[in-house]
Simulated scan of single mutants.
Amino acid sequence: MTNPNTLSHPFKQEAEWQKLQTGIVALAKTEVLARFEQVGAEEKDDGSLLTEADTEMQKQTQQFLAQNWPQYAFLGEESSSEEQEAAMNRDTGCWILDPVDGTSNFAIGIPVYSVSLALMIQGKLVAGLVYDPSRDEMFSARIGQGAQLNGKPLIANTPKQSLKQCSGIIDFKRLSAELATKIATQCPYSSQRSFGSVCLDWCWIAAGRGQVYLHGAQNIWDYAAGWLVLEEAGGYSCDLNNESVVVAKVIKRSAVAATTKPLFEEWRNYLEIK
């Protein structure tokens, strides 16, 4: 467990923390929410979608962060791979932004998307925000200081005691055919969802809106802030190799998570994670 006192950052102070949250909310409302159902989308080289909201939210957020906390580098989903690698290697730390997580939903009028921002220092995630403009919900977390939803403590918990009672948030598309088939034919839980915003997936597990989670391949901007929210809320996670989801690299990672330790252990046993 990382000792939060060994990592220096300004967001231990409430004034700076509130300044960051207020700024991100204002930008999300102006650059993202105001464009909902108002813009078209284009396809990127990897097949994912890009809208004006993605590019403008990233541009304006980068400027806001540089004006207020210039000591940190900036890594955005829409940055070039060279810029992403350079930011990740900055000794002082870097911001990690997904300007619109759930662009596919956003582009076709499904109100399930979010803005995700995390701060990584020395390979550790120290602060994270996930803002849902459609619901005006701000999930936030600071290392060693707990998680919050709209300023109120967020604690991962659920009255569901067994895996068979649970709802799973599962992304089948990115799983191996063998694992996807096993889940589909030997369903271990009560019901299954896939919402299309990885950042919200993590936060909704923390809030008990689903109890177990599985995703086969997500980038650091997808999971960084949401992972910290769940971690600080007291939830549990690992990858499919039983290692930490978080690595200080721009590579895809699998993710397994649950609200409580008993459910996490039962879920891992079902997935045959050793």
Results as ranks from 00 to 15, higher is better:
212 V>I: 15
73 A>V: 04
44 K>V: 13
127 A>D: 09
213 Y>E: 00
157 N>P: 01
268 R>M: 10
109 G>P: 02
160 K>N: 06
139 F>R: 00
15 A>Y: 07
175 L>M: 03
255 A>M: 08
32 V>S: 05
112 V>S: 11
181 T>Y: 13
150 N>Y: 06
200 L>I: 14
22 T>L: 10
51 T>A: 11
107 A>K: 03
77 E>N: 07
189 Y>H: 12
17 W>E: 06
253 R>V: 12
242 N>H: 10
39 V>T: 14
65 L>N: 13
115 V>P: 02
147 A>Y: 03
41 A>G: 05
98 D>T: 03
9 H>R: 01
51 T>S: 12
151 G>S: 10
265 E>L: 14
196 G>D: 00
41 A>S: 10
111 P>N: 06
204 W>Q: 13
251 I>H: 08
131 Y>R: 00
26 A>R: 11
124 K>S: 15
255 A>G: 12
84 Q>D: 06
97 L>P: 01
84 Q>S: 12
244 S>C: 12
145 Q>R: 11
65 L>S: 13
266 E>N: 10
163 L>Q: 03
230 L>Y: 01
129 L>F: 10
219 N>V: 06
167 S>V: 15
273 I>V: 11
137 E>Y: 07
5 N>L: 13
240 L>S: 02
208 G>C: 05
228 L>Y: 12
147 A>E: 09
178 E>D: 10
162 S>Y: 07
132 D>T: 06
178 E>R: 07
152 K>I: 13
95 W>Q: 03
239 D>T: 09
117 L>M: 04
144 G>T: 07
210 G>F: 10
60 Q>F: 14
260 T>P: 01
261 K>D: 13
169 I>K: 02
104 S>K: 09
11 F>N: 07
220 I>C: 06
146 G>M: 05
61 T>Q: 10
2 T>H: 09
233 A>M: 06
137 E>H: 09
48 S>K: 08
37 E>M: 14
207 A>F: 03
85 E>R: 09
160 K>M: 11
206 A>R: 02
10 P>F: 01
56 E>Y: 08
211 Q>R: 04
203 C>I: 07
196 G>R: 00
168 G>M: 11
162 S>P: 01
71 Q>M: 11
8 S>D: 15
236 Y>R: 04
167 S>M: 12
126 V>S: 10
267 W>I: 13
119 L>P: 01
119 L>Y: 01
118 A>C: 12
71 Q>I: 08
231 E>C: 12
169 I>L: 15
176 S>N: 04
83 E>Q: 14
111 P>G: 04
4 P>C: 07
53 A>V: 06
137 E>V: 13
97 L>V: 09
186 Q>L: 02
272 E>N: 13
105 N>E: 04
58 Q>S: 14
210 G>A: 15
115 V>H: 04
186 Q>F: 02
97 L>K: 05
66 A>L: 07
165 Q>N: 08
24 I>W: 05
80 S>I: 09
161 Q>P: 00
67 Q>E: 15
135 R>M: 07
47 G>W: 04
138 M>T: 06
94 C>S: 13
100 V>R: 03
160 K>C: 06
43 E>L: 03
81 S>Y: 12
173 K>A: 14
203 C>D: 06
104 S>G: 07
1 M>T: 10
157 N>A: 14
199 C>A: 14
199 C>S: 14
218 Q>L: 11
256 V>E: 00
43 E>G: 00
173 K>D: 11
30 T>F: 10
83 E>D: 15
177 A>P: 12
1 M>Q: 09
134 S>R: 04
248 A>K: 07
